[in-house]
């Protein structure tokens, strides 16, 4: 069976990023967990990559990344618990092409930081509905690409 992102997974992520609590929870509960272990996690990782690329690829300094993570963690107590600042900064720098070690970051810390960074970038960019759809289309394309390459290996 070919691995690919489903429409339900994409709708779930869209509900998450647009802050629709009930819709998100309902959609997430209805997800096929088996398929979501690949597709939805791929969406989160690809969304993080695209979000960081949009946010920082035009030019950045370390202070920008530190400042961004600081703002992210200051959003709420839950955000401060979810985001390990060192891990988040390493992940962002790694995504921007820097040779920093991210292999030793555990899965929970990495996925939590990726999810939070993705949500924060979308929030700061102030994307409209159409812009969010366009962004998610790119994310889905990248996630499908990743899943396809994973399946080839």
């Amino acid at each position: 069976m070919a691995l690919a992102v489903t429409d339900e997974q994409l709708a779930t992520l869209r509900a998450l990023l647009s802050g629709e609590v009930e819709k998100y929870r309902g959609l997430f509960d209805r997800l096929d967990r088996r398929a979501a272990q690949d597709g939805y996690t791929a969406l989160i990782a690809a969304g993080f990559f695209e979000a960081v690329d949009r946010k920082f690829s035009t030019g950045y300094e370390y202070a920008d990344i530190i400042d961004f993570v600081g703002r992210l963690r200051a959003q709420s107590d839950a955000a401060a618990e979810d985001v390990d600042p060192h891990a988040a900064e390493l992940l962002i720098r790694h995504s921007l092409g820097e040779d920093v070690p991210v292999d030793e970051i555990d899965t929970k810390t990495m996925v939590s930081a990726q999810t939070r960074v993705l949500g924060r970038v979308v929030q700061e960019e102030g994307m409209s509905g159409a812009e969010l759809d366009s962004f998610l289309a790119d994310v889905r394309q990248l996630a499908d690409n990743w899943l396809g390459r994973e399946q080839e290996q």
Binding site: A15, L16, L17, S18, G19, E20, V21, Y24, R25, F28, R33, A36, Q37, Y40, T41, I44, Q75, S76, A78, A79, D82, T107, K108, V111, S112, T115, R116, G119, Q123
Partner: peptide, 18 residues
């Protein structure tokens, strides 16, 4: 593990965003 982490973080994050 990744899906569980995403679920837990998403539940808290969606509240912050909302």
């Amino acid at each position: 593990d990744a899906l569980d982490a995403t679920s837990a973080t998403g539940d808290r994050m969606v509240v912050d965003l909302e």
